Computed example of a mutant assay.
Amino acid sequence: MGITERKEKQKTELRRMILDASMKLFVEQGFENVSIRKIADLIDYSPTTVYLYFKDKDDILFNLHELGFQKMAEYNEGLWDIKNPLLRLHKMGENYIKFGVSHPEFYDLMFIQRAPMQSIEKMVDCEWKSGDVALGRLKDTIREGMDKELIVKGDVDAVSMAIWSMVHGLVSLSIRDRFNKLVPPDAVLPMMTQALNWLLETIDLTLKP
């Protein structure tokens, strides 16, 4: 490995160290209580070093947010080859649940904590492409199902919101250990998948007046 390649590898590793340390502190102390100095102290570097990679704490949070969406997208690789939109919708729900249960820290950052969205709103000319793509995939699948008369026609945005809220509720309750009151820990994920399948098979996907 040449000098240039070695330096690039070191930069990549240090950037990942900063993100990992930031995630740890955000989870343990909350976004508001974490400072660049705390992040730097955790990885034994100076705050100046952290600022070489990220302009501020909001920038770190945004990059963690984006990393979470990249991880979630990996669960859906090959999903768009499924021709039947209903089957694809079921699989999207299952993958969403698996991601949330497997990566609760990222899920909390992406879909529960207020700080990420507040940070994104403050960033100038910030395009939240990852979030838009994820939501767009859901809406496209529902719209396709309606076009093929596999889903009762209705307001795509409203139906998307209903389905997203449903799986979000399942994941949120799970990562807060609420389902342990109902089933043993090793049965939570299978039960969540069963609940998802039952709901998607029986829900009336019509926007009621």
Results as ranks from 00 to 15, higher is better:
Gln10Gly: 03
Gln10Tyr: 07
Lys11Ile: 02
Lys11Ser: 05
Lys11Pro: 01
Glu13Ala: 15
Glu13Pro: 06
Glu13Ile: 10
Leu14Gly: 03
Leu14Ala: 08
Met17Gly: 04
Ile18Leu: 02
Ile18Trp: 00
Asp20Met: 01
Ser22Trp: 02
Ser22Leu: 07
Lys24Phe: 07
Leu25Gly: 01
Leu25Tyr: 00
Phe26Asp: 00
Val27Asp: 14
Val27Phe: 06
Glu28Ile: 10
Gln29Ala: 06
Phe31Cys: 07
Glu32Gly: 03
Asn33Glu: 11
Val34Met: 03
Lys38Ala: 13
Ile39Leu: 10
Ala40Leu: 06
Asp41Lys: 00
Asp41Gly: 00
Asp41Arg: 00
Ile43Trp: 00
Tyr45Ser: 12
Tyr45Arg: 15
Ser46Pro: 13
Ser46Ala: 15
Ser46Thr: 15
Pro47Arg: 02
Thr48Arg: 14
Thr48Gly: 15
Thr48Gln: 15
Thr49Arg: 12
Thr49Val: 12
Val50His: 05
Val50Asn: 06
Val50Gly: 09
Tyr51His: 14
Tyr51Asn: 11
Tyr53Ala: 05
Phe54His: 02
Lys55Gln: 11
Lys55Val: 11
Asp59Asn: 14
Phe62Met: 12
Asn63Phe: 10
Leu64Ala: 12
His65Lys: 08
His65Ala: 03
Glu66Cys: 10
Leu67Tyr: 07
Gly68Tyr: 09
Met72Gln: 13
Ala73Trp: 07
Ala73Ile: 04
Glu74Ala: 14
Glu74Phe: 11
Tyr75Arg: 09
Tyr75Pro: 09
Tyr75Gln: 10
Asn76Ile: 06
Gly78His: 02
Leu79Trp: 00
Leu79Gln: 02
Trp80Gln: 15
Asp81Leu: 15
Asp81Asn: 15
Ile82Trp: 04
Ile82Val: 15
Lys83Cys: 02
Asn84Met: 06
Asn84Val: 08
Pro85Arg: 01
Leu86Val: 15
Leu86Ala: 07
Leu87Tyr: 11
Leu87Arg: 13
Leu87Met: 09
Arg88Met: 10
Arg88Val: 07
Leu89Trp: 00
Leu89Ile: 04
Lys91Trp: 00
Lys91Cys: 00
Lys91Ala: 01
Met92Leu: 13
Gly93Cys: 08
Gly93Ala: 08
Glu94Trp: 00
Glu94Pro: 01
Glu94Asn: 01
Tyr96Gly: 02
Ile97Arg: 03
Ile97Tyr: 05
Ile97Cys: 07
Ile97Pro: 02
Lys98Val: 11
Gly100His: 05
Val101Glu: 03
Ser102His: 06
Ser102Gly: 03
Ser102Ile: 02
Ser102Thr: 09
Pro104Ser: 05
Pro104Ile: 05
Phe106Ile: 04
Tyr107Thr: 12
Asp108Ala: 08
Asp108Cys: 08
Leu109Thr: 04
Leu109Phe: 01
Met110Lys: 01
Met110Cys: 14
Phe111Met: 06
Ile112Gln: 13
Ile112Phe: 07
Ala115Asp: 13
Ala115Ile: 08
Ala115Phe: 04
Pro116Gly: 04
Met117Leu: 08
Met117Val: 09
Gln118Arg: 09
Gln118Asp: 08
Lys122Ser: 12
Lys122Arg: 14
Met123Ser: 09
Asp125Met: 13
Asp125His: 12
Asp125Glu: 08
Glu127Leu: 11
Lys129Phe: 13
Lys129Tyr: 09
Ser130Tyr: 11
Gly131Pro: 13
Asp132Lys: 11
Asp132Phe: 07
Val133Ile: 15
Leu135Asn: 05
